[in-house]
Nucleic acid binder design. Structure first.
Lengths: 337, 337
DNA sequence: GCAGAATTCTACAACGATGCAAACCGGTGC
DNA sequence: GCACCGGTTTGCATCGTTGTAGAATTCTGC
């Protein structure tokens, strides 16, 4: 089996605690001793058993990240960024998929699996206000992305309302007046869909454009297929529209595809704007104008916030809420004018 | 702090070992005792400390999955599938990103972090034959995707040569003769790029179409931007071509975008075929004909193979090689004729 | 050359769980 | 009435590490 501290100690001719001291950079170790120990470590290829270390020290240097599914590019890219940021701090990341399902989110929050981690970054989707007290957990927890309830808990998110409002105003400024929306999700109380819809309505109101419910199409999951389905539904409704605001890029791309199949030119007949600024938005045909919600910043900040909470020793600090800045990325599907 | 076995034991009025027996479904526990213990567990909200359990039992019920980056949809979707499959077996998955970088792949194989897992599923990219003995590791290891060297090690992959050959023949059958290829990677000896190129050449040879190196464009990373860059390069070369075979969908989509920007019609002027069958391939404009390499099967099989190796007790079984079946998914970018 | 203060090293007890083997307990069989 | 037998419960050692406290060694100043 793998070498342990004691094996190294025996080889180096010191007590096993000294080996531990060397590994942990304990200051008072004579250079000669240190070198002897290091040679023994190298010779045996000793690697510390992190489980034992965790058990003893109480720290695992592992964090859990729970997202709906990696199949959604937004979450895949976000997860990639969180993992990269964690790697920089020497942390390991356990990735969990909840499917955006309430029960699985709740189960995760209670799961013993989390005892192997120092904390959790959760992107909740399915949970609602009635589940808020499930967030009363005995470990550091950071919500990443819109929370669907009111609860004092660290929270890193984007300016959904403002960004959606800006996106809508961008379309309005380019002369569009009949702006359809894809991604509304009626069951949801405080999630992204609701907030983005609010931003949309604020923009309309600010420009005296009447809100028309027949331009709003719901989609609970935000996959490409949902965007496509929503666009079919919109076309079937046979209401005129000259722009589409997809609540995420994936749906916007799905919708854009259907739009063009149906013979509508983008952007001449219909402008399309998305939300997320996925990698692929720059390469679609036409390329997709979208909102960059500041994902890189979100990922890093979520991790930093979690680490700060983990490092916390004294009395509990009040919950933090961090908001990313957004920008609108202009591309072909919705030119400025 | 969290409740331990002893706390539960005290509350239930039994020895802590009995509590352990209840938790582990040890058969000889009187129903009355079991119930008493279970009540105490529920009352205290006891959750086993998995670190302690792992230390003692040697099993972590966690596996590591290392892919180049989640930013590449292929790997994101693959990772999602592996995690989902692991979840079904009650396993946790640690995700590592290597960036396809040789040094990081090697570092990972030697990392103490793996002591927190029961085994590793690795998608190697950067390592080469000279690193083969780095695969001599003291834990179960399964290579997922093409291996870049010859080494007796469990290996789950796709039929790269045959699939590439089939893709090329598909294009030939539709009358194309000048088929460009994007994704060749000269440094690589045995990886996917080489194998797919071989399949391409076999198909050409079988149909007496001469191989023309000026139609082959290299790309070391297989991002959308690489596909776009490669297509620019190809257009700059000013050689005639009537089809493009992208070694993955992401590049094919990037290339298709550039192609259309340049005024070439897809598929009328140039047919495009990809490889991977990503979600988005069905929604691009035009939708992308591609090779489905059997990812779902790959993900599940990789995990199963790893689990079998972990469960292994007796003498080491010989390494397994598992090959997924592929299919060609016909879409608009390359119609059958 | 020696006391006293640093410095360096070691011993022992945890962390919270599981495996083993022994102890217990009530009932049988003789 | 006693040995014996399952089924049931328990005690102890142990996994590999770190924290604390104290022992051993070296260094300093006189």
């Amino acid at each position: 089996m793998a070498a342990t501290l004691r094996d190294v100690a025996k080889l180096a001719g010191v007590s096993f605690k000294t080996v531990s001291n060397v590994i942990n950079d304990y200051p008072h170790v004579r250079p000669a001793t240190r070198e002897k120990v290091e040679r023994a470590i190298a010779e045996l290829g000793y690697k510390p058993n992190l489980n034992a270390r965790s058990l003893r020290s109480g720290r695992t240097d592992t964090v859990a990240l729970a997202v709906p599914e990696l199949n959604l590019s937004y979450f895949a890219e976000l997860a990639g960024m969180v993992i990269a940021a964690a790697e920089e701090s020497g942390l390991t990341v356990v990735v969990e998929q909840t499917g955006g399902d309430r029960d699985r989110e709740l189960a995760l929050l209670r799961s013993p699996r989390l005892s192997m981690t120092d904390g959790l970054i959760l992107s909740p989707l399915g949970m609602g206000q009635e589940d808020a007290d499930a967030l009363e957990v005995p470990f550091p927890l950071v919500l990443l992305g819109e929370r669907t309830f009111d609860w004092p808990c660290d929270h890193v998110t984007m300016r959904n309302v403002e960004a959606a409002r800006a996106a809508t105003e961008y379309l309005l400024a380019s002369g569009r007046r009949r702006i359809a929306v894809i991604g509304e999700y009626e069951g949801e109380v405080m999630g992204s869909a609701r907030l983005r819809l609010r931003g949309y309505r604020e923009a309309l109101a600010a420009h005296d454009v009447p809100y028309d419910a027949s331009l709003v199409v719901r989609a609970t999951l935000w996959h490409r297929a949902d965007g496509a389905r929503a666009m079919h539904e919109l076309l079937d409704r046979d209401v005129p529209f000259d722009a589409v605001f997809g609540f995420n890029d994936t749906m916007a791309l799905g919708a854009m595809r259907v739009l063009q199949e149906a013979g509508r030119r983008v952007p001449e007949d219909v402008a399309v704007i998305g939300f997320d600024d996925l990698d692929e938005a720059a390469y679609s045909i036409p390329s997709l104008t979208t909102v960059d919600p500041g994902r890189e910043w979100l990922a890093r900040t979520a991790l930093e916030t979690l680490l700060a909470r983990i490092a916390e020793t004294g009395p509990k600090q009040p919950p933090r809420t961090e908001l990313a800045d957004f920008t609108i990325v202009e591309r072909e599907s919705a030119p400025k004018n």
